[in-house]
Structures are given as structure tokens and as C-alpha cells.
Amino acid sequence: MNKKKFVRHSIIYFLLILGYVLLYVANLDSILHPDRELNPKSSVNFVYQQF
């Protein structure tokens, strides 16, 4: 694996792990906004618009 690819992969995996922990484990948005009803975006809402 060349250096460029290694750096790219490191960034991707770092963001993936960090994002997973913050969004799905710690639920950061519910900590930042405890009063707001958690309503995660459906992953395919956009899809439905275009049937």
C-alpha cells in the first residue's frame, strides 16, 4: 500500500469510527439538544421521492 492510499484509508477509518461513536453510541445530538425529540433522518427518504 502506497503512502497516499495509507493516509486516505487512515482518514476514512478514523472518521468512520469517530462518526459511529458520536452519532450512534453517544448520540451527541441528543446530548447537545436534550429537549429535541430524536428523529434521525430515514436513510432512504430521498429514494422514495423518486420511486
Partner: peptide
């Protein structure tokens, strides 16, 4: 797959939760 998961389930989701919905 990894890039797709990062785009869709992390970055898009974060943009929605911390951006659009706010």
C-alpha cells in the same frame, strides 16, 4: 463499501442531525 457507509451513514447523517434539522 467503507466509503459508502462513511458518506451515507456518518457524513450525511451528521449533516442532517447537526445541520438541516437545526
Amino acid at each position: 463499501l467503507i466509503l459508502g457507509v462513511l458518506y451515507k451513514y456518518i457524513i450525511a447523517e451528521a449533516i442532517f442531525r447537526f445541520g438541516l434539522s437545526q
